[in-house]
Design a protein around this nucleic acid. Structure first.
Lengths: 233, 233, 233, 233
DNA sequence: GATGAATGAGAATTCATTCAT
DNA sequence: CATGAATGAATTCTCATTCAT
């Protein structure tokens, strides 16, 4: 909801040096106000883009469609984003930010939570985020450079990768707290990540129903088995 | 209608329509022959579609491109397929058939292979099929996108699902051979499936490099851990 | 008018192998007819393009405008030309072909024309062609890679250059007949070319009226002075 | 209105609008000062336009680009120029002014320069100006395109013509000093002008390379031949 | 069965210009 | 005087699909 958090993802390329002004404070105030307006309008467009993407998929989220939903003419969008790609990038940035927030916020059952509890909380938050917002997963897949290579700039791609990794780090930390070396924790984190992604994909595509399985149960099974294995040694 | 017949397809992309033959037999024979011809031409088009899809990706595999590669004009394609999506559907059908063939063919190290060996062989074949042909995975994702498969008829969708399940059944059989009940084997198969899909997706999207992990190692690790767990009990 | 002459400039990229046919002669006939139709339609589009260019200039000769004038939708044009650039190239190719025809056709006053007479005839034809069709000069300038670099393919550019040179060769031949070495004749031809271009440009842009000069007189003056100089030595 | 004032323009592209000053004098003085400010700001914009045009060509010199380089927003430009064409017109005015300056400044090898030397100097300066700044020639061609100069007012057109003629007058003067009547000198000047323009155009469009000729050599050859002819008679 | 010309809707992007502030 | 958001019309180009032949 609150787009201000993802300010750093896409620096507005249309920013101009403010003209000279007599008093300094009013100018600042105006700049602040205008910048805020600008951010609000960017957010408006991103909202439109997100809704278009969620309802119509990436193919349907054309610039025209986004503009229409935002109440703009297509050309107007380019005042706020250089590209369609930039919009997609910002969208994914937001999404990953929300994911990080969700993971960071997640805590164990009480104040004296064990490492295992915290692992459950962190990994569970990651898993639940995408389970509850399946389209966010699609967004990531479409944009990350594999499935459908879309030309995010290398820098943006790097930043987005960073955010994704950041969302997994809390789990890794708890794996280390459970006695793994850093290297082992990395392996275990990537395996966990793969398991989560696999479950989510199977769930999203309806494949999991073929097995008459509940995704949640699969996830918990994996996690508990992992914890048991760690506590055993 | 029945895609199962398209099992072995003409691989030579330079094949051209066979020259016309003079009518020899009564109407029945003629109908049979014509139907066979029809199947052959469908196969020809699917060959073209597959090669286009593999070389150019989904975006590049336009009807025009497929027609060009098949030696047809765009309009002619519509004599064999109702639309582009139907071609994609048939393509996926073929793909799943090849997957099944690969899994069925896979055997353990020798004639006296243990259940664990066979599980390794069957699951490994499944995994390797998609690892070595990432485009096949893309195809599946494109068509199994979300709950409602892109323009696939329910029947086709059902058949495609059947084929996918069939490719997993050999692994499930071996899990049972290793002592699991059917219900347990189903759970374990779906977890295995999720793990494989997750690893493949992470690999295809380049995400796995972020962890500096090898997909093969992750897969083997999961599988061996699973086998060890089963043999322990 | 007759576009068949410029057949070699743009090979139709949409040509396809003809499907198998029972009898050979009818197929040929059909291919010929279709090819002729195709050529006619290409010619139609080029006519539209030329009229658009002549009336509106290069900027006005958009694909949309050309399509409109040809009675086509924009997309239809792409069945005949790969590009806007290709249309421009074909236009220039035609133009240069007409220039060559004009120069080749030009003869001296009678059968026993002297080298000087032939030089007058050939150079005069070149000059008159552009004087009488000033827009053809514009066409060349806009497309040749200097003023407004438009992306003609290197091959096309080369062929167009060849045609331009070909139109100047008859003059060079006569300069040699008047006693110049090949090297000297090349220098003199390029100087003559420059003079002609200069006069034409000044005439086309109305600059020559500033001097109250007639372009024809300037041209003749230069040419006669050149001939006199050659005959003197 | 009167472009002749824009003789020396602010070359520093980093110059910014001067800060606001407090009003000091009566209305008259204020009007004068504001007009001066206005001129300065017009010059600033023209600087930006010239640099944009030189670096990016006519297509790249969009209003937005010019505004950006001038440190203005697009809308602000319209306070100083009615439209983009007017900017181009002013740019051409400047360009011709620099041409005149270059020609006027040009002198013979020493104080006792002969008429022939001065002709070489003046004509050479004209030629070198455009040879060294081909973009200036483009500018002229863009605006002097065809009979009806692109959106230039008749008055501006007339003034620009005047400036162009003025740049050729020194050569004409020397031709008269070499013994030609005024009428003869005009003819010879226009022929010389045509030759220069022809050489420059051929050079700019790369056509001259087809002859493997150097533009300088062609120019000198013409000039020396002309001087020789005049001195002979 | 096959052709292939043609449509029509759509894609991203650019930009001079206007105008409320 | 200056802003800068917004328009609206333009640009080239792509492509699934149709249909008369």
């Amino acid at each position: 909801m609150c787009e201000c958090r993802i300010r750093s993802v896409n620096k507005s390329t249309t920013a101009r040096k403010p003209g000279p002004r007599k008093s300094v404070a009013p100018a600042d105030a105006r700049a602040v106000r205008e910048s805020a307006l600008n951010q609000a309008r960017r957010a408006l467009i991103l909202d439109a883009a997100r809704s278009a993407f969620f309802e119509l998929g990436l193919d349907g989220a054309s610039l025209r469609e986004i503009a229409k939903r935002a109440g703009y003419t297509p050309g107007a969008i380019y005042s706020y984003f250089a590209n369609l790609e930039e919009i997609y990038g910002a969208l994914l940035g937001e999404s990953l930010q929300r994911l990080n927030d969700a993971v960071e916020t997640a805590t164990g059952p009480d104040k004296k939570a064990s490492a295992a509890d915290l692992l459950r909380a962190k990994a569970g938050a990651f898993y639940a985020f995408y389970r509850d917002n399946p389209k966010e997963l699609d967004l990531g897949f479409y944009l990350f450079d594999g499935m459908k290579p879309r030309g995010l700039t290398p820098e943006l791609n790097h930043e987005l990768n960073e955010r994704l990794m950041a969302a997994l780090r809390p789990a890794q930390v708890q794996l280390e707290a459970l006695g793994l070396s850093t290297a082992e924790a990395v392996v275990e984190t990537s395996a966990l990540f793969a398991q989560i992604v696999g479950i989510l994909v199977l769930n999203n595509t309806g494949r999991i129903r073929l097995f008459k399985q509940s995704p949640d149960r699969l996830f918990e099974r994996y996690l508990e088995s992992l914890i048991a294995r760690l506590q055993r040694s």
